[in-house]
Design a protein around this nucleic acid. Structure first.
Length: 863
RNA sequence: GCCGAAGUGGUGGAAUUGGUAGACACGCUAGACUUAGGAUCUAGUGCCGCAAGGCGUGGAGGUUCAAAUCCUCUCUUCGGUACCA
């Protein structure tokens, strides 16, 4: 055995060993309980960054831990390989997206292998491969046939830089989530998935996800945004038509004094046509349509509107209400029409003040009476109904139900729940994505490609345009198609591709049978492995990816492909790894290795300008605040890097990256190594101690207790909360204790206890630092891989101590401590406490009012 | 604005059925050793104080023999979301 720990020698050896022996390859085994552990697969952007290392290490520890506990563990890895950066990089570097992507995959795979992760690499998938997206196209056609995929004209979020449409979820603060450019509104004909059909189901089932962080279910709940109220019909004066509105406050209907329509609402132009108002209305509608709709801009807009010239009739009060087109009414929420109740809605109040409209109080606070002339803002708390005919005197909450019921009876309204969630627009005008398997035929309309013709393969020889945008419409042989229905040869293939979130919505199921060529997956394999027992990934995917995955699982469920609805039983959202940004006035953002430091000052290595330090934010390639783990891996090896990334903080917590502590982790492994080296000859042929504590004496009895306590603590920390940082601390304490005892002391079972200590330290650490553990495990004379050992258990009798430490407080302040046998009575404790010298000093001349004795813990003397 | 989470030493972080605040590390100080290392070992390290002692978990109150932990108010930071009728 080497005297010194040299990770760079031993790590490649074990990685090869695991690879060759396929020790982590799994298959369905009905006799073993399965455990499916999945980390969110990465986008192959080029290099692994430290956030990946943290994420995959967390997963790897759990996978190895569960394997040692006897589970049949599925732990796969793959690549979320379609997406825009490939196109951008291809243009920048004059290469091809496919080439760029596959090269990145090869490089990143080699990086992951260097971290020593326990993947079943035979299950690796890449979503850009035709044998993967073939089944996505198949599912698209199934969804189309069931009416779950449809086409509609709609205003879409358009990113000019990326030349593509973005889903609502992909717009962050009014800007593109990927490139940061402000998003514009554009009208396009697009494919949509009918996720809103499952809005209620997706919402209700959040309650069943007890293994998810509440934070995430709350975010999804808010995103789905259910509100309960009523739709109410208002007759339009002089027209044989109704305006339907959605409101959550039917109790305030008597106070509705005007009506607001979204500018795009079809009635706006219809009602104003041929009236004096026509030109005003049209110019207003046109102006609003052209307005910038970024969130920032929206905030600065004042509420404004224009009278359409028409009136409607309040169905209960019978009063005439002016109908406006207003900029704050949204066409795609509710019905695109708002019944405005200025007394009880702040927005309506502002609008009424501006245009001098009637304000009518219909809810009073419980203890006072509102007067319109004294009001400075809308009143929207709970209260008592007034000025509302038969409903006066009711609490407004009760009135909501009664008025709704009344409207239903009269045929003027209906109870209704409304959702904020919109259908999922999936068309992208991009090249590097899954082609949408639909064909536009002049005779037959839009029809699906024949299933036997799948996959519709993405042409690999496409020349990208310098300007961005998809080359697919230019490629004649791709675009030209034969109509699968009538056989016309001049049909056109859809040249849009799917949103890349589609691929990631079903990949967990694909891992169960990655080579299946008869369907999306092998039904029996999925039945065995799915759902995922533990999913791990960044909290940044709390809405987007996780909601889409839940939706897709429901789609597969409805299509009879799977028998469950929730894909992820337990979810661990790992905090993001953050780092400050560095900016050079001339060269913009800088990578850490582009900075030179002189004392406390930092300079750009290209031009020497002083570097400006920006805020601490999530690591991203575009901001260049990334840490390349290969520096750590080359210098310290994988095990130290793994250990450090776990020791720094509990997984769910965000982390400001700082590698100052990494030496401590390296030092710890060295300490363990040196100890094993020191006692190796002594313990190599010995059995680990497994007797009763009374077979041991003194320090060695204590050591035995500490070993068992450590097993208990580490197991609990992993099992209950994945708090590896405290688990590691516990092992460190045990190692510190080993250094404090004399290994040559003549005492019973000495070497057997030392063996027990070393065995368990290696077993407990093995999921965290697997190469290190394998090496020392082999040095101890073991033939099998440490990962095939059983996770250690502790002896209950070893935990028991004959003494206990008692704390003495006076008025709650710590004044003394003493050790006493565990069989001591309360009175013994009291007596012992009062006889302590320091205690005597503090109670001298004072009356003892009360003595509180807490069993096995403390004595508090109140004076 | 609304929803959620979090505030503990110089740093990362421990500790919650209320019961020794600061485990384990990093850093720092002093020393030892030496084959001069990114090594190892010993001692110290919350703050104030020579000490006795006092103070101390964002701030202010409260409950309790006892509060980082429970309650009320408040401040700050981070994350999500936002004209949603």
């Amino acid at each position: 055995m080497d005297e010194k720990y040299n990770p760079l020698n031993i790590e490649p050896k074990w990685q090869e060993n695991w690879d060759d022996s396929k020790i982590f390859k799994v298959s369905e085994d009905k006799d073993k309980e399965k455990y499916y552990l999945l980390e969110m697969f990465p986008y192959p952007s080029g290099k692994i960054h430290i956030g990946h290392v943290r994420n995959y290490t967390i997963g790897d520890v759990i996978a190895r831990y569960k394997k040692m506990q006897g589970f049949n563990v599925l732990h796969p890895m793959g690549w979320d390989a379609f997406g825009m950066p490939a196109e951008n990089a291809a243009i920048d570097n004059n290469t091809h997206p496919a080439k760029w992507t596959y090269e990145n995959i090869d490089f990143m795979r080699s990086q992951l292998k260097k971290i020593g992760l326990s993947y079943d690499w035979d299950r690796e998938i890449a979503t850009c491969k035709p044998d993967y997206y073939r089944w996505e196209q198949w599912l698209f056609i199934k969804m189309y046939e069931k009416g779950m995929a449809y086409r509609k004209d709609s205003f879409v979020n358009w990113c000019e830089t990326c030349q593509t449409v973005l889903a609502n979820e992909q717009v962050e603060d009014g800007a593109c989530w990927r490139c940061g450019k402000d998003v514009e509104q554009k009208k396009l004909n697009q494919w949509f998935f009918k996720i809103t059909d499952f809005a209620e189901d997706l919402l209700v089932d959040l309650d069943t996800l007890s293994g998810w962080p509440e934070k995430v279910t709350t975010m999804q709940r808010n995103w789905i945004g259910k509100s309960v109220g009523a739709t109410i019909d208002f007759k339009i004066d002089g027209f044989n038509k109704n305006i339907s509105v959605f409101t959550t406050r039917p109790d305030t209907i008597y106070g509705a004094t005007f009506m607001c329509l979204a500018p795009e609402h079809p009635l706006v132009t219809e009602l104003s046509a041929g009236t004096d108002m026509e030109s005003d209305v049209n110019s207003f509608v046109k102006r609003i349509a052209e307005q910038d709709r970024t969130t920032e801009a929206l905030e600065s807009y004042e509420k404004e509107g224009v009278f359409t010239g028409a009136f409607c009739i309040n169905p209960l009060s019978g009063k005439k209400m002016k109908i406006f087109a207003a900029n704050f009414a949204l066409m795609d929420y509710g019905t695109g029409a708002v019944m405005s109740v200025p007394a009880h809605d702040q927005r309506d109040y502002d609008f009424a003040k501006k245009y001098n409209l009637d304000i009518q109080v219909v809810v009073n606070p419980f203890d006072s009476e509102l007067k319109v002339e004294d009001m400075t803002e809308a009143f929207n708390d709970e209260g008592v109904i007034v000025n509302s005919g038969n409903f006066n005197g009711l609490k407004n909450k009760k009135a909501i139900k009664q008025i709704t019921k009344f409207l239903e009876k009269e045929g003027k309204g209906k109870e209704k729940a409304n959702f904020r969630l919109r259908d999922w627009g999936i068309s992208r005008q991009r090249y590097w994505g899954t082609p949408i398997p639909m064909i536009h035929c002049e005779s037959c309309g839009i029809v699906p490609e024949k299933v036997e013709n799948l996959p519709v393969t993405l042409p690999e020889d496409a020349a990208l345009r310098d300007t961005g945008g998809s080359p697919l419409p230019d490629i004649e042989y791709f675009r030209k198609a034969t109509c699968p229905v009538c056989g016309r040869e001049d049909a056109k293939r859809d040249t849009d591709t799917m949103d890349t979130f589609v691929e990631s919505s079903w990949y967990p199921a694909r891992y169960c049978s990655p080579d299946c060529d008869t369907g999306m997956f092998d039904v029996d394999a999925v039945k065995y492995w799915m759902p995922v027992d533990q999913y791990i990934g960044g909290v940044e995917h709390a809405i987007l990816h996780l909601l889409y995955s839940r939706y897709f699982t429901r789609v597969m469920n409805v299509l009879g492909l799977v028998d469950f609805k929730e894909p992820f039983t337990n979810l661990l959202t790992q905090g993001m790894v953050n780092k400050e940004t560095q900016k050079c006035p001339e060269h913009g953002f800088l990578f850490p290795d582009e900075i030179e430091t002189k004392g406390d000052d930092k300079f750009c290595s290209k031009c020497g300008s002083a570097v400006e330090t920006g805020p601490v934010i999530k690591m991203s390639k575009s901001k260049k605040n990334v840490i390349d783990p290969s520096i750590l891996l080359d210098k310290y090896g994988a095990d130290t890097t793994r250990l450090f990334s776990l020791f720094a903080a509990p997984p769910e917590k965000g982390l400001e990256w700082n590698d100052e502590g990494v030496d401590g982790s390296a030092r710890f492994l060295n300490r363990v190594w040196r100890f094993v080296y020191k006692v190796l000859d002594q313990i190599k042929d010995k059995e680990a101690f497994n007797g009763k504590p009374d077979e041991l004496k003194g320090k060695y009895q204590e050591l035995n207790r500490k070993i068992n306590q450590t097993i208990k603590k580490v197991t609990g920390d992993i099992e209950d909360s994945f708090h590896f940082n405290t688990a590691i601390s516990a092992v460190m304490e045990l190692v510190n204790m080993l250094y404090s005892i004399d290994v040559n002391e003549e005492t019973a079972n000495r070497d057997n206890v030392l063996r027990l200590a070393v065995d368990n330290i290696l077993l407990l650490l093995s999921p965290i630092v697997p190469h290190f553990a394998e090496e020392l495990w082999a040095e101890l004379g073991n033939k099998n891989s440490v990962s095939e050992q059983t996770w250690p258990s502790y002896r209950e009798d070893a935990l028991v101590s004959s003494d206990m430490m008692i704390v003495v407080q006076i008025n709650g302040k710590l004044r003394a401590k003493f050790s006493i046998g565990t069989d001591a009575s309360d009175d013994d404790l009291k007596e012992q406490a009062l006889s302590d010298a320091n205690v005597k000093k503090h109670i001298e001349g004072k009356d003892i009012r009360k003595v509180i004795v807490i069993k096995k813990k403390l004595v508090n003397i109140v004076v």
